[in-house]
Design a protein around this nucleic acid. Sequence first.
DNA 1: ACGCCTACCTGCTTGC
DNA 2: TGCAAGCAGGTAGGCG
Length: 304
Amino acid sequence: MPELPEVETVARDLQRWVAGATITRATVTWDRTIRHPQPAERFAAEIAGALIHRVGRRAKTVLIHLADGRIMTVALRMTGALIVAPAGTPPDPYARVVFDLADGRELRYRDVRKFGRIGLWPGGGMRSVGAGRGARSRRVAESAGRYRIGEVFSGHGPEPLARSFSAARLAERLSRRSAKLKTLLLDQSFIAGVGNIYADEALWRARLHPLRRADTLTPDEVRRLHRAVRQVLRQGIHNRGSSFSDYVGADGLPGDNAERLMVYRRTEQPCYRCGRPIRRIVVGQRSTHFCPHCQPELSQPVES
DNA sequence: ACGCCTACCTGCTTGC
DNA sequence: TGCAAGCAGGTAGGCG
């Protein structure tokens, strides 16, 4: 999907453009887009009339907070997009859900491959984590419905851009795992929001081989990885995301980050650091791009 | 815990 | 030109 930077871009766009807007009607044209077990018709009925309070992000999911406390979650997966269309914009054959806004605009959920999912949750669940009012929030949430949003994110790892995500915390997590670095970066329960593009970019920046065992990293290597992950994500956000075919912001325009990527989809092209060809291998069934010279198998001190 | 497989979907690119 | 195979930003579930 859109990874953390792309989802963050969409969420910021929506915060600017649709916070304060009212959804007058929802039209679902692909029922399975609505997260099980809620039937699409019930979703459409329950979202009608909702006022959008603010829009945020957790991991790779867009959170649309409604004024009544409920939360709509939009997981874009591979090809999902949330696009604000001005009144009169021609219909989109790939729009799976269309939200009519009271001012005539449409908020469109477009998804060519239909992997994305939209859920609607009772309020309370998100604030219960570390907010000091957990029990009360849970009771409110449970009285409103059987399913709580907390269930969606309970298995997720830390947000890499949060202040609380320190190099020490990463070191501690890495030290308890024997899996390959590439696999772990893609594991949403290990760290939230990193996907295939930014995993490869972070490993190149940190000069770490994708097949390296997590529990063999030196303190210096952990610090490099920590910095690299945060830098590639921040750069992605700064450039409004990486676009190849489907990803666009809420303005419908592609991001500028693809042209600034160092290794992703640059197989056989020269490494920007050493000039040798970038290689492609498969790790955990995912394409993995790296520079065999700059990212050697064994740990190697980097002078700086 | 880890790694591998299949499934979910459609469209684009590549090679014969 | 046609056609089949391979590829794609993600994740859930199952097996060993």
